[in-house]
Amino acid sequence: MAILETRQLNKHFGGLHVTGNVDFALQPGEMHCLIGPNGAGKSTFFKLILGEHLPDSGAILYDGEEITRAKPFERIRKGISVKFQVPGIFKELSVQQNLTIALQHHVAPEILQEEIDRLLAFLKLSQDRKQLAGNLSHGQKQWLEIGMAVALKPRLLLLDEPTAGMTPDETFATGEMLQELNREGMTLLAVEHDMAFVRQIAHQVTVLHFGKIFAQGTIDEITADERVAAIYLGEVDA
């Protein structure tokens, strides 16, 4: 059974159809990338999955259970977690506190510190635990947020452009982090522009265009598809 499934999902803002009849299924253990030109509806699709927007019609199922109208925090409690595009961290709080807040509601107080140390090591932030999160470098902020998302021990992790603004080295290191999480059993769905990164991590790729699924397959199949190249050059209409 798919861990995440959307059925005929629709969302429009006024006359603009940003998500049109999307049927999408994500298998457990998969690392899946969502690509598409600007305005393809990738972010809206994410917001629908998270409950930030409610769809006009269609259904969203998580692990076979319908969550179409569930509140965002209820979806998180079921095992979905997210890393936003712009780092969503608590800037005025220390790195340690950022992780504490992510961990405290499901980790017993006795092992909280142990868990924080483990995450800090994983994120390569052990030296910066007392630093205010707002003082970290951009790449470190992205990692901290990935850490907060992972702290919830989700079964499904959504990542909206996780490497935006990172150096090539940081991007590669991020890919390795995500692969490690995937090996531990986490399913990942990422919106991403950086094709080298997509090639590094993705098992499957879905191309969105004008709110519809345009193509699906492995990265090699997608890059070989001339129609996909054409939509990035603006040569295919909806």
């Binding site: 998180i76 409690r77 977690s81 969503g88 709080l93 807040i101 947020e145 919830l152």
Partner: peptide, 16 residues
């Protein structure tokens, strides 16, 4: 304080 800093992030950590 997490809500003061970033309410959306706080919600997406599972807090109502």
């Amino acid at each position: 304080v997490a809500i003061r800093e970033n309410p959306m992030r706080a919600e997406m950590l599972g807090y109502d």
